[in-house]
Design a protein around this nucleic acid. Sequence first.
DNA 1: CGACTGATTGAACCAGCTCAACTCATGTGG
DNA 2: CCACATGAGTTGAGCTGGTTCAATCAGTCG
Lengths: 246, 246
Amino acid sequence: MDTTGHCTASADKNCKHDRGENGCAECGIRPISVCGSLELSELEEFVRISQIASFTPKTMLFEQGAPAGSVFNVTDGVVRLYKSLPDGRRQIMGFALPGDFLGLALMDLYGVTAEAVTKVRVCRFARPAFLTFVDDKPHLLRRLHEFAGHELSLAQDQMLLLGRKTAEEKVAAFLINMQARYARLSPSSVTVPLPMSRQDIADYLGLTIETVSRTLTKLAREKIILVVPDGVRLLSSERLDHLTAT
Amino acid sequence: MDTTGHCTASADKNCKHDRGENGCAECGIRPISVCGSLELSELEEFVRISQIASFTPKTMLFEQGAPAGSVFNVTDGVVRLYKSLPDGRRQIMGFALPGDFLGLALMDLYGVTAEAVTKVRVCRFARPAFLTFVDDKPHLLRRLHEFAGHELSLAQDQMLLLGRKTAEEKVAAFLINMQARYARLSPSSVTVPLPMSRQDIADYLGLTIETVSRTLTKLAREKIILVVPDGVRLLSSERLDHLTAT
DNA sequence: CGACTGATTGAACCAGCTCAACTCATGTGG
DNA sequence: CCACATGAGTTGAGCTGGTTCAATCAGTCG
């Protein structure tokens, strides 16, 4: 394992979303990924240009401003995407979960920094090979564009949140949102995992760590949520929903 | 002219960015628009599925949540794109200038509301016809995707601004940004036009109208800008740049 | 000219921040 | 096994940047 924390040949067999010996065909997250638009025949070539990589927590997948050498499909774990100001202030743009694609914009330089929050597994594609592959598959480009449109829509929701919502509304919206995203991945467990730190949540919501903590405590005091290690249980999604201001 | 404020056959001849009798060929903003990727031969079909429309200030082009019947290419004027909360709080996602495309995401419903700030002229395309047109032009889809990637990148910059910048940094960044955008459209006039109201600026930056006003006054007092009717003159882009926090 | 709309300015207030103490795991080594 | 760092999270108390509320100013239009 090298210093960047990735290792191309790790075999973590208890990972649920991962392709087996037969390539992508039995990959758990393919239907919800960009690769869901590929024919089985195309998948063969796709798997040939891909590489499995994994990253340990807190290691960097790529850095803001660096040449975009690869694009990634997250198959397991959580990745934080952020931008920083010179003085250290940080804004997290989002948390990528399994099925999410990193490098959608296909631009020359990475626009954000990506770091593993948990152990992360990805399919990695060298950008030139990926671009060549896309070039004669309009349906894949169409799918990428759909994903980009969805991302843009989420970014706009986040702008509304950052610019106009109160701390309580921000935290409530975050919890509801994480619940919905995890529900899509695994049959609705009662507990919403929050593998990221309070600082990460704060930097995602444009708040401080103290305000996040206080707000969670307040919601717990009102029996709307229950704070558990590395997550929360939503006791009343109903009431939480009322707090999100749509 | 109907109640929505658009009129399909208005002939405003002193509009500089507008196609003449020969269709798109002589359109001033084509090189910087999505249609810049089309061959002259394709433009012929493109112009056939398009319709010129204009909107008077404060009229709506389309509304958040409505079925996306059309997509638009702004040829003249300024459009504000925003989302609202039920209680009236508003976040402006951006101001579209000539060359900008509305409806990039190609989704079924509009994600934002679009309103004319100034008199606005657009090329309008019925979405079904546009989608059909795109379907066998991968280079146009590619161009749309590039635009979407750019939009996404701008949205991320705006998230950083909304979540982590001070009022002064927000206003400074806004002015620098508008200057750069107008510079691309017209050979750098010294004055940056600000056709939108202070309320619009506030709702774009996640501030109140009073804070925007005070901040502009402060910058003017420090001789960094000069506030003029419907715009500002940047007296020291240098110093303004230092205030933007990258 | 008055009336209206948008912008500026002033003054009091407060949501969320800052600073600081404390709690609670988890880990380390003597 | 305990003493004791170490780091994440919580809680408290006071502060402040930006908001709120309110007045005033400056165009513009009938």
